[in-house]
């Protein structure tokens, strides 16, 4: 957030007369809605692990392990290289998540989760720094376990040893979770 934006936020606290309908009660969250948040939780957990471990590393083979913010641990290994001029990073990585626990709180109901992830996920493709390149990733897992809450107000969510296939195009994430299709914007 830039300082300008901080100021804009502060000044916006005046009675500017604008109103936001987001204060309406959250709509019911069905299975598809819950899967969207769960997929977000999985993807953002991988993102977190990557940024903690590999971000800023020298290009080449990678193998690092880190504790997760709220417990558990994660290992990421594989190959990665980059083109700094275009802001892109090519990855072929595997994430091993062992009860990796993370949490997200946000005013958007669908961006709230408290999730523990266990399983192995592969990730192949391009991580890009917008707008000079586009992120294009394929992520797969034969058996992933998610245990926790999704949505606001929280809804219990649990899947065990489910197959996951996800593709990311830019900030659009879509695929299937336990055979159920989903699509979500990150």
């Amino acid at each position: 957030m830039t300082f300008h934006r901080v100021l804009v936020l502060a000044a916006g606290l005046g009675l500017s007369g604008c109103s936001d309908p987001q204060a309406e009660p959250s709509p019911p969250c069905d299975q598809e809605c819950q899967d969207r948040t769960a997929a977000r939780a999985l993807r953002e957990t991988m993102k977190l692990v990557y940024n903690i471990t590999l971000q800023g590393n020298a290009v080449g083979p990678q193998d690092e392990t880190t504790p997760c913010p709220l417990g558990g641990k994660a290992r990421v290994f594989g190959q990665a290289t980059s083109n700094a001029k275009f802001g892109s990073t090519e990855v072929s990585l595997t994430y091993e998540l062992a009860a990796c626990h993370s949490l997200s709180r946000d005013e958007e109901a669908g961006e709230n989760y408290d999730m523990v992830v266990t399983g192995s996920v592969s990730q192949t493709g391009t991580l890009a720094v917008q707008p000079t390149a586009t992120t294009a990733l394929v992520m797969q897992s034969a058996a992933i376990t998610l245990e926790g809450d999704v949505y606001d107000p929280p809804i219990g969510y649990s899947i065990t040893a489910c197959a996951v296939e996800m593709g990311q195009d830019g900030n659009q994430l879509s695929g299937s979770l336990c055979g159920r299709q989903f699509g979500v914007g990150l």
Binding site: A84, Q130, T132
Partner: peptide, 12 residues
């Protein structure tokens, strides 16, 4: 945007 020879961030 990031140092050449290093891995960039995941900013998804």
């Amino acid at each position: 945007r990031f140092e050449p020879g290093t891995l960039g961030p995941d900013r998804s």
